[in-house]
């Protein structure tokens, strides 16, 4: 069976003047529909570069991305991104930020009233409908990230791309948002590719964890299945042996690789 999203021998080389750096090499990954896949790796190994290639914001030097068997190499709403720093447009209200995408994606298929309802529906999904007329500068970091998620969800993407979506948040807010994303995934069953450098987050949320080696020329070092049933509860998992074993595996990978680089 063909995978829903396929990363096919992706390589990326940056050239700046006479200096070329190979950031990614031979990255292959198959993602099934409805999968929640996390990519974990040390800072600077090329996680964002990989996500941007999937999003179409960066062109791969070699290899390509196939979505439902069709190559994608330019950005589009079918691969909506939730950016690390929310990237809401500060001159638009919360509602307008979500509406921006909705109006473009459903310009022909939905009437004006339907688009309004759909915008409000997605704001409700992330519990941000109450702040719809606020500007990004008037809401908290966690709320901004929620709006970012609503904006991406509202485009009904085939694959939702999350680049360290909770990286800039405090631990409590982060846990809260993780629960929200888990609930959303449970409810909508969308395909998600998430970048993180938080081991607990990766194990808690994902069906599979992709561990990347250190750069330059980062590759996929190991892929770990997380055989825990959904819905998951962070309190119950804390003492779950499978959870602890997965967590241990990821820590070992990162710790070993890290040591490896320092010795080299």
């Amino acid at each position: 069976m063909q995978p829903y999203l396929k990363l096919d021998y992706i390589g990326k080389t940056f050239t700046r003047g006479a200096v070329t750096t190979e950031v990614l090499k031979d990255v292959c990954l198959d993602i099934a529909r409805g999968d929640y896949v996390s990519i974990i790796g040390h800072s600077g190994c090329g996680k964002s570069t990989l996500l941007n290639i999937v999003a179409g914001l960066t062109r791969a030097t070699v290899g390509g991305v196939l979505l439902e068997n069709r190559e994608v190499n330019s950005p589009g709403p079918d691969r909506a991104v939730v950016f690390q720093n929310h990237s809401l447009l500060p001159w638009l209200t919360v509602y307008q930020n979500v509406q921006l995408g909705v109006d473009k994606v459903f310009a022909k298929t939905k009437s004006r009233a339907e688009r309004h309802d759909w915008t409000m529906h997605n704001l409700n999904l992330v519990q941000m409908a109450h702040a719809k007329d606020k500007r990004p500068s008037e809401i908290s970091g966690g709320m901004k990230q929620r709006v970012g998620i609503a904006r991406a969800l509202a485009m009904e993407p085939k694959v939702l791309l999350l680049d360290e979506p909770f990286g800039a948040l405090d631990a409590l807010t982060r846990a809260h948002l993780q629960d929200s994303v888990m609930a959303l995934h449970q409810k909508l069953n969308n395909t998600i590719l998430m970048i993180t450098h938080d081991v607990d987050e990766a194990v808690l949320l994902s069906d599979r964890i992709v561990m990347m080696t250190n750069g330059p020329s980062a590759r996929i070092g190991e892929v770990l299945e997380v055989p825990l049933p959904h819905p998951r509860n962070r309190l119950e998992l804390a003492s779950n042996p499978t959870y602890l074993k997965c967590r241990q595996r990821v820590l070992e990978f990162l710790y070993e690789r890290h040591r490896f680089v320092e010795a080299a």
Partner: peptide
Amino acid sequence: IPQDYRNVAAVVQLNPLEFFWKVMLPSAA
């Protein structure tokens, strides 16, 4: 104009005219 705003516009697929009115002008205002 921050690269982030350009990325948002690219994902949403704003056309050049929409990009000018909705992102460029307000961002550079």
